[in-house]
Computed example of a mutant assay.
Amino acid sequence: MKEKDLSEIRKIAYGLWEQEGRPDGQDRRHWDTAKEIWAFRHSGEDAPQSQQREPGEAKGLPGHAKAAQKPGRGGQSLRSGR
């Protein structure tokens, strides 16, 4: 996986961690969920319009993951390092 992709997954995982109130011991779950979100975001790039899913229609993503799929959600705070 490219460093750019890993960096994007890290930002998603960090956003999930912040949304949940920064809980301890949840890093693996946040990382796995972030990878699913990243894969979902990139899965429809080459798919025909009829096969693309709406955000939140991915297989069983939890509510916080659906919110993290929305463009601009938490992105500014992630870039500022807060």
Rank of each mutant, 00 (worst) to 15 (best):
G72W: 05
H30V: 10
R41Q: 11
F40P: 01
Q51H: 07
S50D: 07
G75D: 14
H64D: 14
E54H: 06
D5Y: 14
S77F: 15
S7Q: 15
G56V: 01
K70P: 13
A39L: 08
R29Y: 03
K4S: 13
E3Y: 10
E54W: 14
S77R: 15
E57R: 05
S50L: 07
E18Q: 06
S80V: 09
H42S: 06
R82I: 13
G15D: 06
Q52F: 02
S50T: 02
K70M: 10
F40C: 02
R22N: 03
Q51I: 01
L78G: 04
L78K: 10
G81I: 06
G44Q: 03
S43T: 02
A58W: 02
R28L: 14
G75C: 11
I12Y: 01
K59V: 01
Q52A: 00
G81S: 05
K59A: 01
A13K: 09
E3T: 09
G25K: 07
E18K: 10
Q19E: 07
Y14P: 09
G56H: 01
A65I: 04
R22M: 07
K59Y: 03
W17I: 13
G63K: 02
Q76F: 12
P55G: 09
G56W: 00
G60V: 09
E45T: 11
G56P: 03
K70T: 14
L61T: 05
P55C: 09
D27W: 06
H64C: 14
R41N: 15
K35E: 13
A68K: 03
E3N: 13
G72Y: 03
G63R: 01
Q26R: 13
R41C: 13
K4Y: 06
R10W: 09
G25M: 05
Q76W: 13
G25I: 08
P71A: 15
P48S: 00
P55N: 08
D5P: 12
Q19Y: 04
A34D: 14
D27F: 06
G74K: 10
S50V: 07
H64T: 03
W17Q: 12
G74T: 04
L16M: 10
K11P: 01
G44P: 06
A67F: 12
G60L: 09
W31V: 02
G15K: 06
Y14M: 10
R10G: 00
S80E: 14
Q49I: 15
L16E: 07
E45Y: 11
L16P: 04
R53D: 00
R41I: 12
P55Y: 05
Q26M: 12
W17R: 12
R79H: 11
G60Y: 11
A47T: 14
G74L: 13
E57S: 08
W38H: 12
A68N: 01
Q49C: 06
R73A: 08
R22P: 03
A68E: 05
G60W: 12
Q26S: 09
P48G: 00
H64F: 13
R10L: 04
